[in-house]
Amino acid sequence: MKLLIVDDSLIVRNTIERNVRHAEITEILQADNGILALQLFNQHHPELVTMDLTMPHLDGIACLQEIQKNGPPASIMVISAINSHRTAMDAVARGACGFLVKPFTPPELIEAMNDLILHAKENGYQYDA
């Protein structure tokens, strides 16, 4: 499975990448803004996405909407500081299947990622091979 990490902080992206080594994940892509995220998503069709909500250019909610509109279905986890109930509801309405709240610890991230991979498998999102 492919994982797309979307976050404007390099530190957060790298932290996610290093901590989610999982036998199921064969390729990891990174995007530091919503527009690049969309390009990478449409090119590579990742089954798994972690999405920051506050980003330059195209924010997380708009990015989720575009992904839902065009791309193949994916298991998308929002990794962000959740500032408002409305934003969280918007994210769910646009296809996010859960939230990991920043700041998170590596064990929390690993547990969340295992759940996300399981979710992708159960829903039959497996586009490589």
């Binding site: 986890m77 959740i82 109930h85 969280a88 509801m89 769910v92 299947c97 859960g98 939230f99 990991l100 709240v101 547990e111 969340a112 759940d115 996300l116 979710h119 829903n123």
Partner: peptide
């Protein structure tokens, strides 16, 4: 109102159990 929204979300099978707990209002 937020509770009502959240209860709706709870019955959505597409969402991941552990990952919707953070938004429990």
């Amino acid at each position: 109102e937020q509770l009502h929204d959240y209860l709706k979300i709870l019955f959505n099978p597409k969402l991941i159990d552990r990952l919707i707990k953070p938004i429990n209002p």
